[in-house]
């Protein structure tokens, strides 16, 4: 049974229809990547899945039940890290752990925080505040915080898009490893097709907005662990990349043509009608 489902979801802000007829089904233990242009509605989609916002139409289901609101069962790694700046790395993770594992002893809670900070390789920086951490380190803290509450599903909203290429590659490997070891269900939103292919079991493209919708899923059948350099020569990798990139560009072309046509219609109807002399 699917752990997370979207059923014909629509979402608008004011008069802008951001998402239109979006359906998705994620199996337990699966790593699904949603790839789309910036501004296509990826974060909106994430907010719906986490429960931070509600769909105008359609349903969001978690383990078969409608999502009523946000919950630690669906951990979120936010795009801009969202660490609390007045707390140290340790305390940021601890805040989450103390809330979710409130029945554990303080020692057990602290031990858990330490374990997850170690998992992301930040034990040496645990006393530092976010302002004293680099972008990559902040994202690691955010990742540790999301993992430490042991969510059933991990939602990652462009977790690496603000990072430089090298840090990005390192963290991609880290997410890969964590996904493999923990067997968690992960939904990754990204604008990087290569990143999606490197990490995901299945890639779902999000068409260009407005009225963005999900395209046909593409399974990635490349054995793990995947080697970034070797992959570039893999014909299957090239095929997936070409098909997803083509799909995204095509949807963008169609959108642009349509909005240009709309503008033309609007301009024509606005012309003054000349009465025959």
């Amino acid at each position: 049974m699917a752990i997370l489902e979207l059923e014909q979801v629509h979402k608008s802000f004011g008069t802008t229809h951001v998402l239109s007829d979006v359906s998705l089904s994620v199996e337990p233990g699966e790593l699904v990547a949603i790839v789309g242009f910036s501004g296509a509605g990826k974060s909106t989609l994430m907010a719906l899945l986490s429960g931070l916002s509600k769909p105008d139409q359609g349903r969001v289901l978690f383990k078969g039940k409608p999502v009523e609101g946000p919950s630690p069962e669906r951990g979120v790694v936010f795009q801009n890290y969202s660490l609390l700046p007045w707390l140290s790395a340790f305390e940021n993770v601890e805040l989450a752990v103390r809330e979710v594992f409130s029945k554990d002893s303080r020692n057990a809670q602290r031990e858990r925080v330490a374990r997850y900070l170690e998992m992301v390789g930040l034990t040496y920086a645990k006393e530092r505040r976010p302002a004293e951490l680099s972008g990559g380190m902040r994202q690691r803290v955010a990742l540790a915080r999301a993992l430490a509450i042991e969510p059933e599903v991990l939602l990652m909203d462009e977790p690496l898009s603000a990072l430089d290429a090298l840090t990005r590659a390192t963290l991609q490997d880290e997410i890969e490893r964590i996904a493999r070891v923990s067997g968690k269900t992960i939904l990754l939103v990204t604008n990087d097709v290569d990143e999606a292919i490197l990490l995901a079991d299945r890639i779902v493209p999000l068409s260009a907005g407005p009225e963005a919708t999900l395209g046909a899923p593409t399974p990635v059948e490349i054995a793990r662990p995947r080697d970034r350099r070797a992959m570039n020569h893999d014909p299957h990798f090239r095929k997936i990349r070409a098909s997803i990139t083509d799909y995204l560009l095509e949807t963008q072309r169609v959108r642009r043509a349509r909005s240009a046509a709309n503008r033309r219609v609007a301009a024509e109807s606005a012309l003054p009608v000349e009465s025959p002399a």
């Binding site: 931070l52 919950s71 936010f78 801009n80 969202s82 609390l84 805040l95």
Partner: peptide
């Protein structure tokens, strides 16, 4: 963003106030 963190963790109103809003 900070309030979203509190929401995802399901912090109570009082805890959100003390741990997030006041600081």
């Amino acid at each position: 963003d900070y309030l979203n963190v509190a929401k995802v963790l399901k912090l109570s109103k009082l805890k959100t106030l003390v741990k997030v809003m006041v600081p």
